Simulated scan of single mutants.
Amino acid sequence: MPHREELAGFLRSRRARVRPEDAGLPRGHRRRLSGLRREEVALLAGVSSTWYTYLEQGRRGVNPSRQVLDSLARVLRLDDDETRHLHRLADQAAVDAGIDADLSPAELARELVYLSEEIPYPVYAADVHCDVIAWNRATIGYYTDFSQLSAERRNMMWWLIGSPEARERLPDWEDDVQDVVARWRRVSASVADQARLRAQVAEYRRISPEFAAWWDSHDVREHRTRGRRFNHPRLGIVTLRLIVVDSAEMVPSSFVVYHAPVTR
């Protein structure tokens, strides 16, 4: 497919011109390439290293969504003309493959999680009601197996305040939950189904006095990167960095939460 090959070549050429120090990465002494490595682009863009490698190789079945393309454009420091060119190449490659490039916010979020299945750290997608709509295998070890919960309980807020397991898995449970409540407070202004939101808040207030106090404080917080400690059943205490992806195509209805190891 010529457009897929052109897309792959364009990505390789842009990656080669970005210096590690421009991306906030150490150059090191054993680096043979002047530009970024594939795995570095993948990490900075919040995608699987294997998936990005396949994209650069022009393989079939690798179809980046618009928000992933925007993330790649940011990491590769593309200007406006180059960004539009990147989107055109990806759209035409999707047309060549007979794929609809327009996905719903939830479908885009699920696609990101699906592409992150090989990552050894949690990646999950949620909506504005905190319903967990997709998760990779690593999420089970750090959080819980959401597939074992009923549909109405497959909700991150409910799990945090209503499941004893959450207090076991999160050593800093109070700080973590207070942070999530403040984030949800901000998002709640854009919730279309206000009746369900009010029912959720009423239920959570009933089962958790801590939630009631934090909700009533009206503290709000943007989706910012922060650390979170986990008590992993096999690995013990592990600290990961939360990175929330909520591009314009998913806002306000969905977002994806990545977890990365804390290296410094």
Rank of each mutant, 00 (worst) to 15 (best):
residue 71 S to K: 03
residue 89 L to N: 10
residue 169 R to P: 13
residue 163 S to H: 08
residue 128 V to T: 02
residue 189 A to E: 10
residue 224 R to K: 12
residue 75 V to Q: 07
residue 4 R to H: 06
residue 14 R to D: 04
residue 179 D to Q: 10
residue 46 G to F: 13
residue 87 H to I: 09
residue 172 D to T: 09
residue 92 Q to W: 12
residue 258 Y to S: 00
residue 1 M to K: 07
residue 153 R to N: 09
residue 112 L to W: 12
residue 256 V to R: 02
residue 216 D to C: 07
residue 188 S to C: 01
residue 106 A to G: 08
residue 20 P to R: 14
residue 130 C to F: 07
residue 169 R to A: 15
residue 230 F to M: 11
residue 259 H to N: 10
residue 228 R to F: 01
residue 249 E to Q: 15
residue 257 V to F: 05
residue 243 I to P: 00
residue 232 H to P: 03
residue 29 H to L: 08
residue 91 D to C: 06
residue 51 W to D: 03
residue 249 E to C: 06
residue 231 N to F: 07
residue 224 R to F: 12
residue 60 R to F: 10
residue 262 V to G: 01
residue 264 R to Q: 14
residue 11 L to V: 11
residue 216 D to K: 05
residue 129 H to C: 01
residue 246 D to M: 13
residue 236 G to T: 12
residue 190 S to C: 07
residue 145 D to F: 02
residue 9 G to T: 05
residue 110 R to H: 08
residue 249 E to W: 07
residue 73 A to N: 10
residue 76 L to D: 04
residue 151 A to Y: 00
residue 218 H to W: 12
residue 26 P to W: 06
residue 155 N to Y: 01
residue 86 L to V: 08
residue 210 E to C: 04
residue 224 R to G: 09
residue 179 D to S: 12
residue 208 S to G: 08
residue 91 D to S: 15
residue 53 T to L: 15
residue 211 F to A: 03
residue 127 D to G: 02
residue 60 R to E: 14
residue 119 I to E: 13
residue 258 Y to A: 00
residue 62 V to M: 05
residue 182 A to I: 00
residue 47 V to G: 02
residue 262 V to K: 07
residue 22 D to A: 13
residue 203 E to Q: 08
residue 185 R to D: 01
residue 46 G to Y: 11
residue 237 I to A: 14
residue 138 A to S: 13
residue 83 T to I: 03
residue 196 R to H: 14
residue 184 W to L: 00
residue 2 P to N: 13
residue 75 V to S: 09
residue 162 G to D: 03
residue 200 Q to G: 01
residue 49 S to K: 06
residue 251 V to I: 10
residue 235 L to V: 03
residue 23 A to H: 10
residue 25 L to P: 04
residue 5 E to N: 14
residue 193 D to W: 07
residue 210 E to F: 13
residue 57 Q to V: 11
residue 179 D to A: 11
residue 16 A to D: 13
residue 137 R to L: 06
residue 51 W to C: 05
residue 253 S to E: 15
residue 242 L to F: 09
residue 189 A to F: 09
residue 261 P to K: 08
residue 69 L to S: 07
